[in-house]
């Protein structure tokens, strides 16, 4: 399966289609961090996690779509349907992790992070850790959304773009603090809000479990859809 992950990542990078989401992400982060002010790590990273969520989902869709349908079926014959699906998701996670690392590193050279203490005297290092946690919660959810929007599931570019757009808008709108159905979407917004205040272990576990459950449901839907969509 690792060989298939490598093959798909190589195809994704060599086609050059990785450039569009990466450049969009860099542009968005540049606007975010280029304002001149410096924020506390957790706050900066909380916003960053929300900002790159659509980029990660879009990138996942492109990565899964870039492989020709027949090549995907060839891979399915060789490694089996479950491993073929898993290899695509794993490749998307690896590619997404690279974007997350860039997003985490970018504010430092731009002077967008202040090492001043956080709320209730929270050390800056804890703020950084919370920011990493926010990104790591956003990444699997974005991969799951991108997978649901990919061509094997949606079968057309129009439906794929619609699923992606509705998903991203839904994450923001349903994630607002006064939303009545926050559980419909992964807790990207909720996490961004949470890291600006002292985070209790219980709240952290709740948000992590919420994100994990949402990802599990979304990926189960992806697996179910792929049963008849080779």
């Amino acid at each position: 399966m690792i060989a298939l992950v490598r093959l798909r990542l190589a195809g994704f990078v060599r086609t050059g289609r990785a450039l569009a989401p990466v450049l969009t992400g860099l542009l968005a982060l540049g606007v975010l961090y280029g304002g001149g002010g410096a924020g506390r790590p957790a706050e900066v990273y909380g916003v960053s996690a929300v900002l790159i969520f659509p980029v990660l989902a879009w990138q996942t869709k492109i990565l899964l779509d870039v492989e020709p349908d027949v090549q995907r079926r060839l891979a399915r014959v060789v490694v089996g349907p479950a491993r073929e699906r898993a290899a695509g998701l794993l490749a998307a996670l690896v590619a997404g992790l690279a974007v997350v690392l860039v997003a985490l590193a970018m504010p430092w050279p731009l002077g967008a992070v202040s090492l001043a203490g956080g709320p209730a005297g929270r050390p800056a290092l804890v703020g950084v850790a919370l920011g990493v946690w926010a990104h790591l919660l956003a990444l699997p959810a974005a991969v799951a959304l991108g997978a649901l929007a990919s061509r094997p599931i949606t079968r057309s570019a129009g439906y794929g773009a619609a699923v992606l757009a509705v998903g991203v808008v839904g994450v923001v709108v349903c994630g607002l603090s006064d939303s009545v159905v926050p559980w419909l979407v992964p807790p990207v917004m909720a996490t961004a809000r949470a890291v600006t205040a002292p985070v209790t272990p219980g709240a952290g576990l709740l948000l992590t479990g919420w994100a994990a459950l949402w990802v599990a449901v979304a990926l189960a839907g992806y697996a179910w859809g792929r049963r008849t969509r080779a």
Partner: peptide, 22 residues
């Protein structure tokens, strides 16, 4: 397959080696 999916950014050697590993 009836039509080989040639729209891939690999050389023949690289592609076959990768498929062998897959």
């Amino acid at each position: 397959p009836e039509r080989f999916p040639a729209d891939q950014p690999f050389t023949v050697g690289d592609y076959l080696a990768a498929m062998g590993r897959v």
